[in-house]
């Protein structure tokens, strides 16, 4: 690929990088793993870039490639395994009593989302990103009805995690 393509890709990625950071935030739990996954998603986006057609929004396309990398292609590197993760911190959070302050609620909520499995996280991620069920179902390859049903189950699951 030529310099011009590289330049336009980097420019787009720089603008929309927060999407990748959000995926990394959901699927990793330490700084090194975050960077590692970010890099892998960037490589996958770059490799697939020639196939990117302008008719879709770059950001929409990023959601698909980003999630696919996180739930299917990504292999944890040695670097990210050897680093101490945030589990200790997260454990401390869960041990604290659940009170009504918004900040505390959010902490516990993020911790609860981290406990979901990869597919559930993908659904929650797209939901938080305000994607409609047709886009969620297209991204994951499931029917719209099943996406709705699963989302409802996740809500119930989160409730159980929050109020055991």
């Amino acid at each position: 690929m030529n310099k011009e393509t590289e330049h336009s890709f980097v420019e787009l990625l720089e603008t929309h990088q927060n999407i990748i950071h959000k995926v990394c935030r959901l699927y990793t739990n330490n700084y090194d793993a975050h960077n590692d996954l970010f890099q892998e998603i960037t490589i996958q986006l770059w490799k697939a870039y020639p196939k990117f057609r302008g008719d879709a929004k770059f950001s929409t396309w990023m959601y698909r490639v980003g999630l696919n990398t996180a739930i299917t292609l990504y292999r944890k590197s040695k670097r990210s395994i050897t680093t101490q993760d945030f589990e200790g911190v997260a454990f401390k959070i869960s041990a604290e009593p659940y009170d009504d302050t918004e900040e505390q609620q959010l902490k516990v909520l993020y911790k609860a989302v981290h406990q979901l499995n990869d597919i559930e996280k993908a659904l929650v991620f797209l939901y938080l990103e305000d994607k409609d069920y047709s886009e969620i179902s297209e991204t994951l390859g499931i029917s719209e009805v099943n996406a709705r049903v699963k989302m409802n189950r996740i809500k119930t699951k989160l409730k159980t995690i929050l109020n055991p």
């Binding site: 590289e6 980097v10 720089e14 890099q39 960037t42 490589i43 990504y74």
Partner: peptide
């Protein structure tokens, strides 16, 4: 920054 992203494009993928 863009300067952080450029080197990433030439790194090797470790995908499945």
């Amino acid at each position: 920054a863009a300067t952080d992203i450029y080197p990433m494009l030439h790194k090797k993928s470790s995908s499945i």
